[in-house]
Amino acid sequence: MADIIIVGAGPAGLTAAIYAQRAGRKALVFEAAVYGGQIVNTPEIENYPAIKKISGFEFATALYEQATSLGAEVKMERVISVTDNGSSKTVKTDNSEYECKAVILATGAKNRTLGLENEKALIGKGVSYCATCDGMFFRGKTVAVAGGGNTAIEDALFLSNYCEKVYIIHRRDRFRAHEAEVAKLKGRENVELVLNKNVTALKEDGGRLCGVEVTDKLTGEKSELAVAGLFVAIGQAPDNTPFENVATLDNGGYIVAGEDCKTGIAGIFTAGDCRTKQVRQLTTAASDGAAAALAACSYIDSL
């Protein structure tokens, strides 16, 4: 039996595994897709203390190797449910069932979707959530970015280097992104701001995206933009619904817990982007991993 089961092998989950193993507790980590989480999509990390520059892939790989070399076990299984039996917990995956003493939910967050009918079908056929991954396929074409935060502005700047034209569609009249970046964007001749508008439909031709319908938030007027690509950058969303029985979720679906990473249920902890917090960064994910693991260790000591 593992002492601590960690749900999610992103930076928070793997950091928790490192701290648990070093505290002499056996950590078992479950991951549904790929270890590393969202950071794998980042070409260059330049804000992690003591590391000037590293790719998300290298960071994830190094973290994984550190955790496993300390004895943590990582299994590629999707966790379906967690049951609290008091001093033991049962974790059910798509493959098997496991018992442990404490659980750390480090499920992270995923790219938020627009929620449009044919959006999923058009992924890889014009709809993308990663401009740095997919931008080169739209060289010389007209594309749109949906969103108004830092990621959206960075995406639009990046795309404007390759694309014929870049529309940036934002539901407000102001951007939330850093001023300097917005000013840079406004200086680009091939960028057009489409403000106070929402993307309300995706137009397709032969199974590929050919345009987007936008609706003016104030007037309700609809118009269409012909684009070959749409980069969706409207933030992240968690998916903690399988764990509602062992954790309280806020309106956004995040697990309610403070900096101590305690959920309110004895032996159930949470760490990283899936937790209610102000700042969701690599450093704060790692910080949560440490706090949650050490809290779990002292909980086990008290059993």
């Binding site: 549904a32 992924i123 890889g124 396929f137």
Partner: peptide
């Protein structure tokens, strides 16, 4: 028509029969 990577394309008997985008298990 690749516009996102990683993309996996499955061919059987010379025909494209299935595809998927992104990291999967």
């Amino acid at each position: 028509g690749i516009s996102s990577i990683p993309s996996l394309l499955v061919f059987k008997g010379g025909q494209l029969v299935n595809q998927s985008v992104g990291v999967i298990t």
